[in-house]
Amino acid sequence: MVNFAALGKAGTPFQVRIERGKIKEFAAATRSENPAYWADEHPVIPPTFLTTQMFWQEWAGQDASPWQAVEFDQRRGMHAEQEYVFHGPPPRAGTTLTARSRITEIYTKQGRRGGTLTFASMVTEFRDESGRLVAEAKLTGVETAQVPGEGV
């Protein structure tokens, strides 16, 4: 059962060090040939690079991610959407950001095939050394009313 009390819960801030090698690894994994990721000494991050913050949260400790507080049943949960917003140029290698995640939405709606769908969103804000908001990553997950294949 989804925990609606998780709405507004925030994780502890954690550091995100943007490293040149990690940008190149990410570009290679996504098969990008964009020279902006390869040639520069301080390359800009690919737009979806911020997805890797989920790993940083794990390394930062359990308190960094409030997502577990939503209590989705993973047998019925799915990743529904991912969105990135940059408030200026994307960060470059050599930058250290402070990130903090917060549960921003939890709501239900009726599914087309019957059954209730529960949605939850988590926004992670990325701030530079001066505290300026650089980027936001929004993750939306959905939980179905039944485990797929059961009750069909």
Rank of each mutant, 00 (worst) to 15 (best):
G8I: 08
E33I: 10
P66Q: 10
G61T: 08
D40M: 04
R20I: 05
A60F: 07
P35G: 10
R31K: 00
Y107G: 12
V142A: 02
G141F: 02
A120H: 13
P90E: 01
E150W: 06
L50R: 09
H87A: 00
S121N: 04
G131Y: 05
R20N: 08
A120W: 02
T95L: 05
E19H: 03
I106M: 09
F119Q: 05
F49E: 07
A137D: 06
H79T: 12
L50T: 14
E150S: 14
T118Y: 05
Y84T: 09
R102V: 15
E71P: 00
G21Q: 14
P13H: 08
P89L: 04
F55E: 14
W56Q: 13
T95Q: 14
L7A: 03
Q146F: 02
S121V: 00
G114Y: 06
G77H: 01
A5P: 08
V142M: 08
Q62C: 01
A69K: 13
L117G: 09
Q62V: 03
I106T: 04
M54V: 09
D73K: 00
Y107Q: 10
D128R: 02
E105G: 07
N3W: 01
R127Y: 11
S32N: 12
G151R: 13
Q57L: 12
R102M: 15
K109Y: 04
G88N: 03
P91Y: 11
A69D: 15
G88A: 00
M1S: 06
T104F: 08
G131C: 10
R20L: 12
P35M: 06
N3L: 07
R75I: 04
T98C: 11
P66C: 13
V134M: 03
P90Y: 04
E136L: 03
V44M: 07
A99V: 13
E81A: 07
P35S: 09
P13K: 10
E25G: 07
Q15C: 09
A60P: 03
G111H: 12
M54H: 02
V44Y: 02
K24A: 08
L133V: 03
A36W: 02
Q57H: 04
G77N: 08
G77Y: 01
L97K: 10
A135Q: 06
A10Q: 12
P90G: 04
E58H: 02
R75A: 15
M54P: 00
R112C: 05
G21M: 04
T124H: 10
